[in-house]
Amino acid sequence: MSAVSLERKPLITRDLNKFELEIANLMQKIEVEKSHKSDFEIRQENDKKKAESKVFSESDLDQAAQQTAQDFLDLSTEELQHFKQASRVGGDQENNYRTTKRALDRNLLLLVSEKVGDKEMWILPQGKRKEGETLRDTAERVLKDKCGNLLKAKFLGNAPCGFYKYKYPKAKQGETMGAKIFFFKAQILDGNVELNGGPCQDFHWATRREMEKLPHEYLKAIRLFLIDEEH
């Protein structure tokens, strides 16, 4: 059997922790101290000096009409305020488990709720290999079958990245004792999951902390090949 570990990689940088922030501020301060003053700062200083020496000559009056450094600064600040940056937090999307636009600084893993045997379980999208398919083909087909055509994903290589095997319950054991699952890594490029009556009941773009929904042993096998998050 093949399963797909489909991830949405972080879109924005992670927040710095307290210690990292302290170091970042310190480095910033040192860099400013080591730097030379810019043309603009020199201009500001000259303006200040001119204002302090209150002796106005004819030529100074002519120059007063010119733009001062402060004017320039105000104009630039106003221009900056007109530009609105996108927010780092998803807002009301943040608690919507079905959107990829949440937790932008985290890795999100696609979990689906599916009937395995007679129990409803949270797992990664998985399916049996058909005759003549390679495992990668199976993984690509499974993703299309279960999550619809709108989802565009990039598979990372032909080799499986993880392995998990389990036994069927005694009553179900026939010719085969259990199943072996080979996991393939993929990254989402565009789109989202479409259930429209497929075998999956529900889906969840889970952060690393929300993966407790998975069965314990299964989770252990998956954690083996996932990239950690620091905090």
């Binding site: 072996k180 996991f183 083996l224």
Partner: peptide, 28 residues
């Protein structure tokens, strides 16, 4: 850890079916 996981999967696949193993180790 990630490399170990992949090697484990490949080893198991080799035991299961050499043909599938060969198709898995191809460069994409």
């Amino acid at each position: 850890r990630i490399l170990y996981s992949q090697q484990l999967a490949l080893d198991r696949l080799k035991m299961e079916s050499p043909e599938l193993y060969l198709s898995a180790v191809q460069v994409d």
